[in-house]
């Protein structure tokens, strides 16, 4: 599925959609940034509850298709602005990390 179609599902809110047509090839879940960098694959949707600005560099370098901010975690305006600048997709999910992953699993 594309990042845009994920963003349209119930419980999902698009925060930044720079590349809406980007295909989601898999899912990676994690909050330890180096762990994510070492294990996420290019094209994965990355589910996390980390919201500091460093997630943008991690998303960009590991080339994930989108960040999915689970559990309704809020994102600062400055992070949203930088994500737009850097072209990084971010979707907010009001579901728990587990529920978000289960939802995604139906489309992979």
């Amino acid at each position: 599925m594309t990042v845009e179609s994920l963003a349209k599902l119930d419980g999902m809110t698009p925060l930044v959609l720079c590349e809406p047509e980007r295909e989601i090839d898999g899912v990676y879940i994690g909050d330890l940034l180096s762990w994510v960098m070492g294990n996420a694959s290019s094209g994965d949707a990355w589910i996390t509850i980390m919201s500091n600005i460093n997630i943008l560099a991690v998303a960009s370098l590991s080339d994930v298709s989108t960040i999915v901010l689970a559990e309704g975690v809020a994102l600062e305006e400055a992070v949203i602005a930088t994500a737009k600048e850097k072209g990084i997709n971010i979707i907010s999910s009001e579901l728990s990390t587990f529920e978000t992953a289960v939802l995604l699993s139906h489309f992979l």
Binding site: D31, L32, S34, G38, N52, N54
Partner: peptide, 15 residues
């Protein structure tokens, strides 16, 4: 608390 310090930095560099 920022998500660093997992002890994966140097291992990732090698990997």
């Amino acid at each position: 608390s920022l998500g660093f310090g997992a002890g994966m930095g140097l291992p990732n560099m090698k990997r």
